[in-house]
């Protein structure tokens, strides 16, 4: 049988029961989709390839969010368990569920930013699933481009201009990865010329507006803990405002569809860092309260630990109020800037 020598290209993709990889031969690239017992092959010949695009996608951020949120919850449970505020068995639960989550989070982080790679031929546009992370993709595509250049020759500017229509847009600059300042410039609500772009801009506006409301409610919730007198009223106000804020954020997430695009990502990452950071600090203060006064408060529970009895809790709560309100103002400013552009 005629054999072909294949060389492995960087990048891989795993589905629920499949694993995709990419290989190069003398005159084609081979996309292998393997279930472990059966391999399926797709060949794309260098002479047929018209172009390749690599577009960064928010998939890695979404994955980090999807894994990071339960990981944080498990971590809080484990820490409160170790601090003997709840049964110690919860620490084992945290370990069992937390380890796979932690592993997934680290793997996602190490693999880097995600992207979508498309190969264009005269008859079809093919998504190369193994090339789904930016770093290996750029290496693989550069290698493929070299092989296509050997097959087809270099690109000719004059002949390209013959088929092109209209003036070309300038490029700003070249970067190894996504440039943050350029991304900020791409906040651009309502700047997209097509209908789909306008719809996306509207969705982004919705997402940011709901995020702003959520932040405002979170700030008020923390403020209620600080100012309202009476334990029951204080805690009820706190929890109601917190639930309302989560509802507002999830409604925005559902309606916005793609919050990680068009600047929603900036607001979201700030919320994660500042918002969750203050929550973690808040719980740390609660735990330190519990550890410092175990004897004086024998009926100490998780609920009455929310009472701001110690100065450190007050400081953390004040920080939480300030952070939430700052984020609210940020959302408003971004929305106003987007409208005036």
């Amino acid at each position: 049988m005629e054999t072909v020598k294949y060389r492995r290209l960087p990048g891989w993709h795993t589905g629920l029961f499949t694993r995709d990889s990419l290989w190069s031969a003398d005159d084609h690239i081979l996309l292998v989709q393997s279930s472990g017992y059966v391999e399926r092959y797709r060949r794309y010949y260098f002479k047929d390839i018209q172009g390749i695009t690599v577009i960064p996608t928010p998939r890695s951020y979404r994955l980090a969010l999807a894994i990071g949120t339960p990981l944080l919850l498990v971590a809080v449970v484990a820490v409160t368990s170790i601090a003997k505020m709840i049964q110690p068995e919860w620490a084992i639960f945290g370990g069992i569920f937390g380890m796979p989550l932690l592993l997934g989070f680290v793997v996602n982080w190490v693999r880097g930013k995600s992207c979508r790679t498309t190969v264009y031929t005269a008859v079809a546009d093919i998504n190369l699933t193994p090339l789904s992370r930016l770093r290996p993709t750029l290496r693989a595509v550069t290698r493929i481009a070299e092989l296509v250049d050997i097959c087809q020759g270099p690109l000719d500017r004059t002949r390209l201009n013959l088929v092109a229509e209209g003036p070309a847009a300038n490029i700003l600059h070249r970067k190894t990865h996504v440039d943050r300042s350029a991304k900020r410039g791409a906040l651009a609500y309502g700047r997209s010329p097509d209908v789909a772009g306008e719809l996306k801009a509207k969705q982004s506006t919705l997402w940011l507006a709901s995020l702003g409301v959520a932040e405002l409610l979170q700030g008020l919730a923390a403020l209620a803990l600080l100012l309202i007198g009476g334990g029951a009223v204080r805690q009820a106000t706190f929890f109601i405002l917190l639930i309302l804020s989560l509802l507002a954020a999830s409604m925005g997430l559902a309606r916005g569809g793609r919050p990680l695009k068009y600047g929603g990502i900036v607001a979201l990452s700030h919320t994660l860092v500042v918002g969750l950071g203050t929550y973690v600090a808040f719980y740390a203060a609660v735990i330190s309260n519990a550890m410092k006064h175990p004897a004086s408060t024998p009926d100490f529970t998780f609920t009455n630990a929310l009472e701001p009895t110690l100065p450190v809790t007050k400081i953390v709560l004040t920080m939480s109020v300030a952070g939430s309100l700052l984020l609210f103002i940020y959302c408003v400013v971004v929305l106003i800037r987007g409208r005036t552009r």
């Binding site: 018209q50 172009g51 595509v141 550069t142 002949r159 088929v163 190894t176 350029a182 791409a186 651009a188």
Partner: peptide, 29 residues
């Protein structure tokens, strides 16, 4: 622009600021 093609890194569109890598070959024209 012609300079945007076949670069080993991401380039940023001067019009909308979005990033991407674009490779174009003679088979296109």
């Amino acid at each position: 622009a012609f300079e945007a093609f076949n670069q080993p890194n991401l380039i940023v569109c001067g019009n909308c600021g979005s990033a991407g890598a674009y490779f174009l070959f003679p088979a296109y024209y």
